[in-house]
Nucleic acid binder design. Structure first.
Length: 264
DNA sequence: GCTTGGACCTGATTGC
DNA sequence: TGCAATCAGGTCCAAG
């Protein structure tokens, strides 16, 4: 989409998780996408109109590239998706469809000049792959926190962009119990955790993401990282490190998978 | 101020 | 076979 102009924008319903901003399609039609970026799990398209188009996939959102572009994309659009809610037509003939059965995703517009004050970005912690993120940062962010470290890592103000799967995997790699209170994570363990977070993210990206049921790349291809999960969705299986049993528990409403023997 | 749990919504899976 | 209950990758907000 970068460098292309939106020749047609179609919002097929009034809302996703939230209502679309006023005049959503009209404000986008004709705009040129100067740059595509990302902050945590939010996609950000900088437009030449002065707005930033912010997009979040929620849990089941998916972008599919179709149409006939003069450039490199020639994917078959495939059968029409039942839950395709937004369609972007590009000036080179490309077609970007957004489908989202559960509608936990959303799209928003915000002035580009003020993007740092976008509510979701304001209190957001560092990107895990950035220099700002480290064991020392984690230890400082965890200081005094009486919430389990599992919940703390899901808090986007501590680290940006980690979800349930990768938090479970990173805690296993670092040998830290998800039940441990965040404030009690030692300095060496915080270092190990920061390193594990980076590893998990890097490997998952390398593997093309995790396709459990909904995730697919824009050409429809699936990720492979789910085959490398050490604990996630492996309740009852043997821990690959110590042979102990992988357990499941529910923390703040989310499933946590961990090894009860070697995660302390 | 911090923490937890419910709400949002649909579809797949499981168990009776 | 059919139905109900449960669960799912995220985030926000009210209540405690």
């Amino acid at each position: 989409m970068e460098g292309r102009r939106l020749s047609r924008v179609e919002a097929r319903r009034a809302d996703l998780r939230f209502p679309f901003p006023e005049n959503f399609a009209a404000r986008l039609t004709g705009a040129r996408i100067e740059r595509m970026g990302r902050r945590a799990k939010y996609l950000a398209a900088d437009l030449d109109t002065g707005d930033c188009l912010i997009m979040h996939l929620g849990m089941t959102g998916r972008f599919t590239i179709g149409g006939r572009q003069q450039g490199k994309f020639h994917h078959d659009a495939g059968p029409p998706e039942r839950h395709e809610h937004v369609v972007f037509g590009l000036d080179d003939g490309g077609r970007i469809g957004y489908s989202d059965p559960r509608r936990f995703g959303f799209m928003d517009l915000w002035p580009l000049a003020d993007i740092e004050n976008y509510p979701a970005f304001r209190a957001m912690g560092p990107e895990p792959m950035s220099n700002r993120f480290s064991g020392a940062w984690l230890r400082e962010a965890f200081r005094g926190r009486r919430t389990p470290v599992k919940a703390a890592l899901l808090d986007q103000s501590m680290v940006a962009g980690l979800g349930n799967i990768y938090v479970c995997e990173a805690l296993w790699r670092a040998g830290i119990s998800p039940k441990r209170l965040a404030g009690s994570v030692s300095a060496p363990k915080a270092e190990a955790l920061a390193a594990a977070v980076r590893e998990v993210i890097a490997e998952a990206i390398e593997a093309g993401g995790s396709s459990i049921s909904d995730f697919a790349a824009t050409d429809g291809s699936l990720g492979y990282f789910q085959h490398r999960f050490s604990v996630y969705d492996r309740e009852g299986e043997a821990c690959g490190r110590c042979g102990g049993g992988v357990k499941r528990l529910v923390q703040s409403g989310r499933s946590t998978f961990y090894c009860g023997a070697c995660q302390r």
